[in-house]
Amino acid sequence: MDLKEIIKPENLVYKRTECLTDKTLSYCPGCGHGTVHRLVMETVDELGIQSDVIGVASVGCSVLAYDFMDIDMTQSPHGRATAVATGIKRCWPDKFVFTYQGDGDLAAIGTGETIHACNRGENITIIFINNGIYGMTGGQMAPTTLLGMKSSTTPYGREVELMGNPIKITELVAQLAGTYFVSRQSVHTPGNVRKAKKAIKTAFENQKLKKGLSLVEIVSNCNSGWKMTPVESNKWMEENMFPFYPLGDIKVEGQLVQK
């Protein structure tokens, strides 16, 4: 059968959401950031909230997120995205406000802002990308870098005696009274992408309930920082990241999920 007979508007089953701009993403080939950007914008598209959403980009690889998302956005100082989002949401309680932060931004320099925004129960959504490394500055150790994992500042692997432990900030904020929905997902397989999309959608829809903060962590790859091919990095992520950062919902409707 000729492909031309299939490629017709009436047969379209998947295309890039128009809530993304035409700009080519600045991320490395195979980086999960692009997929998560798309899921967030698909969510905005499907919920029909483009005119009511305000995003907060942070500092790190995703600093230019505002170039790729076709929505009103601001760009926060390093680590302060949840404080910036708090300022916006308090002034616009009926807008959908979200932050898009990496692990360095959210779990190292911004730990205080993260914990207090979660604890206050700000009615915002946090999209948290955890790839266990500082991508933009050249692959240095992150708060989430696994023990034994190599980075440019742990060239012989992270040792607990020298560099301390990796932090599971998502489990930590799930303990706080102000969080309503906390989930950890990934975007490396079609099935995982669909689950992540569902979690992100829930996290946005929750803002209408005004019952607290929703956080979705995406455990993602950093093939450049990890010095692997994209396909290898996803395999490494499954074998090494997921045992320490297990996927699934951690808190739903304000209740911790019993495992």
């Binding site: 601001t74 100082p77 302060r80 989002a85 916006i88 002034c91 205080g112 207090h116």
Partner: peptide, 26 residues
Amino acid sequence: MVLLQAESEIAAINMVYGAASTGKKT
């Protein structure tokens, strides 16, 4: 008017930054 005691001066000024970016008097 919104009044919020932040967790630090750093958080407070960044809340100002967020609110100001929406055109509000902050």
